[in-house]
Design a protein around this nucleic acid. Structure first.
Length: 198
DNA sequence: ACATTAACTGTTA
DNA sequence: TAACAGTTAATGT
């Protein structure tokens, strides 16, 4: 986890529960808290003018939400919405900065985390400007697997739905399905009762 | 609730 | 103009 939960609790954090589809913060909101997921899954997204959704990222246990907005004076550029039942640690902004001052190793951990997020952004911004949808899906799936210790072929199950993969790549669900089938034909991944293994 | 398929439409190489 | 991605709608798991 990014910051140890005991340290967060000792420094003024509280735990808040969110139901699926509940909003943690919204585009345009002012930034008052450092958020860290204790348990659950959260998506960071935007809605286009036509209502279609673009998902920037899906985050899980131990990861933080919208932390980069704590360091500029700008409101949130994205929404943050619970996917599953979530318990989120909420640390008021002032307490967060006090903690960073007192414990420089936490500052470094936060910088490391933001750096990791930026790395992903670079990969995905390039990926999403690629034309070939099969390549888009393949790069995304490989990125998702890159965090696993087990690098063996077909050892990692993709837990995202086809719709989520579509929103992460800007493709239509049907195109994701077609692309995944092509990748299966090329023996790059395995499909077992609808579940993707890479 | 999610995945798949088919038939159709528009865009583009 | 053939290929291919998005749209819509129906069907399957």
């Amino acid at each position: 986890m990014l910051i140890h939960e005991n340290i967060l609790m000792e420094n003024g954090a509280s735990i808040k529960n969110f139901k699926p589809k509940e909003i943690i913060f919204e585009e345009g909101n002012l930034v008052h808290y450092y958020f860290q997921i204790h348990q659950g899954e959260v998506k960071i997204n935007n809605y286009n003018a036509d209502g279609t959704e673009f998902i920037h990222n899906i985050l899980g246990d131990g990861q933080s939400l919208g932390e980069s907005s704590l360091f500029n004076e700008k409101p949130y550029p994205t929404n943050s919405i619970a996917i599953s039942d979530c318990k989120i640690l909420c640390l008021p902004k002032n307490d967060f900065f006090k903690l960073l001052k007192e414990k420089p190793e936490i500052s470094v951990a936060v910088i490391h985390y933001i750096s990791e997020r930026m790395y992903y952004k670079m990969i995905m911004i390039k990926n999403n400007s690629v034309k070939n949808p099969v390549e888009k899906v393949w790069t995304l799936l490989n990125y998702l697997k890159s965090f696993q210790f087990n690098k063996d072929a077909f050892s990692f199950q993709i837990r995202h739905t086809r719709q989520e993969l579509a929103c992460l790549t800007g493709l239509a669900v049907e195109t994701v399905i077609r692309s995944v089938k092509i990748l299966e034909k090329e023996h790059k991944l395995l499909i077992q009762n609808g579940k993707i293994f890479i």
